[in-house]
Design a protein around this nucleic acid. Structure first.
Lengths: 224, 224
DNA sequence: AGGTGTGAACACTTTCACAGCA
DNA sequence: TGCTGTGAAAGTGTTCACACCT
């Protein structure tokens, strides 16, 4: 792995440091804003401006960034393209990730159709489902595989990340085989707790739970 | 030692108390587990068992529940149907919520197709889009409306919650009109920060940011 | 004995406030 | 002067440990 002398010390720190979930989510948001303002021809942004556009505070922005290095210029702010490039490297977005979609049902096909993943470097290289009627159908430039070949497909395609959109009942069996297939990152849409080895990272997207949280919030304020 | 008021006052406290995001998300998860185990014929669950199934700790479960009342029986645990019913009431799920889907593009139509919302009491009563070619098309039992009628449709259908699946550029204008339409809950899929009055609640679903968080996690451990 | 409810301790995150540099 | 980078303070959320009840 190539190292740059300039930031070499910081690079090493970051594996030891415990970077919080919330910090990472904000970094991703900062990057989005930087790309957007960069396209608009702006070449410098202050922590204050970044904070305003991402709904946080200037101090928070500076703290988040300072965990990884000193990217700003005092009195000026941050150089947009440079910081964007740093963030891409920090987030591991300076490469393409190979993604398998496990579950070709409604959510699965929706995510595939959506297409927003590919633009940001997440390429769907395989789609799998248990339904024999779906196996062999063409999805974009991918042929849907039988989930019984899960491990083999994951290894053959060098899959880094699995997007899991199967029903809750199917999870225990499929999850074991995803892990056995060497995958260490899972984006989970099934409304169950995934139990995985500590070297596997899971991020959950639970839309219904978010709706229920809205329901809670509306009930609170509405009842006053 | 100061004497505490008897538990009768807790219901009232709950509007004043600040319940954290994470607590609400866990409550929603507890409810799911309770419904699942209830269907399986189990009628008592300990905090330990609930914790195990939701990926948290027994102390956390008890703390979360104790914010709203004393629902358990010492030495026994929690009665499944009773606690489920309490949680539904706490979360405001003892009613139906009227939802409008604003944005009939890929994500929007995917969410509509998905159908998982209706089962949990979130009924989609309107779909809106700016594309003239889509206006008038039939979505289930709903006719897609022109987004230029947004406020009127929201009021006519007594919409409680908007699911926002429009492109980032369209957000500022549409958001103002959603708020003007009297909606106080928004499930946002657009990758921008929504600025809303304090009586409006927003929950974000940012799938690409979750993928980027996975990318970060994989880059960290992979480099060691 | 067994498991809840809860104050107190602890850990983590955010905000403050200001030194230091362009 | 303007804005970053960062220790210290404040605030929030989680875990511990045990009294208490069935």
């Amino acid at each position: 792995m190539p190292e740059r002398a300039f930031t070499a010390g910081l690079r090493l720190d970051r594996v030891r440091l415990n970077i919080s979930e919330s910090t990472v989510r904000r970094l991703s948001f900062y990057l989005r804003i930087l790309e957007k303002t960069g396209d608009a021809g702006v070449d410098t942004l202050s922590s204050e401006e970044l904070a305003e556009r991402t709904g946080t505070t200037a101090a928070q922005v500076r703290k988040d960034l300072s965990l990884f290095g000193s990217f700003g210029k005092r009195g000026l702010g941050y150089a947009v393209p440079q910081l964007a490039s740093e963030l891409r490297e920090i987030l591991g977005l300076d490469r393409t990730w190979r993604v398998a979609l496990v579950g070709g049902g409604r959510i699965g096909s929706a995510l595939f159709e959506y297409g927003g993943f590919r633009h940001r470097g997440f390429e769907i290289v395989a789609v799998l489902d248990a339904d024999p009627a779906k196996v062999g159908t063409i999805w974009g430039d991918v042929v849907l595989s039988d989930i019984s070949n899960l491990e083999a497909v994951l290894r053959a395609e060098s899959v880094d990340i699995v997007v899991l959109t199967i029903p809750a009942e199917a999870v225990p069996d499929v999850l074991d085989r995803v892990v056995a297939g060497g995958v260490r990152g899972i984006l989970n849409f099934a409304p169950v707790q995934l139990r995985v080895p500590s070297d596997v990272t899971v991020k959950d997207v639970h839309m219904v739970m978010e709706l229920e949280a809205l329901s809670f919030a509306l009930s609170q304020t509405g009842g006053e």
